[in-house]
């Protein structure tokens, strides 16, 4: 191999790396979509294998266990129906009051269940891939939830998959409100450990805050990305900051994203 080949190879890599690192966010996202399409056959294989596994598991599940589960589900369904009827009355009442006060009607949630198909290969980001994309109506910034609370927001949309930035990632800073005191702050990355990714920092809390460990946090609705009132987590500790304007608190998120397999995307 002569020297010329080495020079050409080095020049090519240097040029490509420079171009890639200086692309606009839009062009970069388009190129990422193009390169991620190489993985489509592998993701399809994974989906097929999981469906086959589910089918086998369904067939080998003992009948007694299934009957017990059906009975439990029937009971919880009846309970939920009762609560739904009660909530429908409250929604009706709320709508009437909003009309009387001439307030805008609240947008209805339209959640759609999706599977997590991959996680970020890099250690320094917290994001996951879900198997819903622009073909299914997913758009950037849509909130992503689990039964326990907020998970993150859609960061990047591909035709059949999307990437979700999880709470605690620098790309998912959100405004939250402490239920007990009504004070707001911003959830920021940091504070997490290797085996407990549910720890994050809450910034810009008033220094004179009366918030106590154990207080619950909800989305504030500021910024108009996340609807108001989605559970986020609990306060663990508030750092005293004598003489300062704001203080920082440690928060434990209600959802442990490393254990999730399925999430809900709030479609609009």
């Amino acid at each position: 191999m002569n020297k010329r080949t080495y020079v050409i190879a080095s020049g090519l890599v240097l040029l490509l790396a420079t171009v890639c690192l200086n692309l606009s966010p839009d062009s970069s996202a388009r190129l990422k979509r193009a390169f991620s399409s190489f993985f489509i056959p592998l993701f399809s294989l994974q989906k097929g294998a999981e469906q086959a596994g589910d089918l086998i598991a369904d067939n080998v599940a003992p009948r007694k266990e299934l009957l017990q589960e059906i009975s439990d589900l029937k009971q919880s369904n009846q309970l939920l129906r009762l609560r739904l009827a009660q909530n429908n009355n409250l929604i009706q009442e709320n709508d009437n009051l909003r009309k009387q006060l001439k307030l805008l009607p609240k947008a209805e949630w339209n959640p759609r269940l999706t599977r997590i198909v991959g996680r970020d290969p890099a250690n320094w980001w917290r994001s996951v891939q879900i198997d819903l994309g622009s073909m299914d109506g997913v758009k950037v910034d849509m909130p992503v939830l689990a039964a326990e609370g907020l998970v993150g927001r859609v960061q990047e949309v591909h035709p059949h998959r999307s990437r979700v930035a999880l709470l605690g990632d620098p790309a998912c800073r959100i405004s939250v409100t402490i239920k007990a005191t009504g004070e707001s702050g911003v959830l920021n990355a940091g504070g997490g450990t290797v085996f407990d990714p549910t720890l994050v920092d809450l910034l810009f809390l008033p220094a004179s805050t009366e918030a106590r460990p154990g207080d619950t946090l909800f989305t504030s609705g500021l910024g108009e990305i996340f609807p108001r009132g989605i559970p986020v987590g609990k306060l663990l500790a508030v750092e005293p900051a004598p003489g300062a304007l704001t203080t920082t608190a440690r928060v434990k998120l209600s959802v442990n994203s490393s254990k999730l397999n399925e999430v809900w995307v709030l479609m609009q």
Partner: peptide, 21 residues
């Protein structure tokens, strides 16, 4: 180097081709 880094960053929040060099 080229394809590996582009494929890896396409599944990540990393900037495109960050591991190429």
């Amino acid at each position: 180097a080229i394809m590996g880094s582009l494929w890896q960053s396409s599944l990540s929040s990393d900037p495109l081709g960050i591991s190429m060099l």
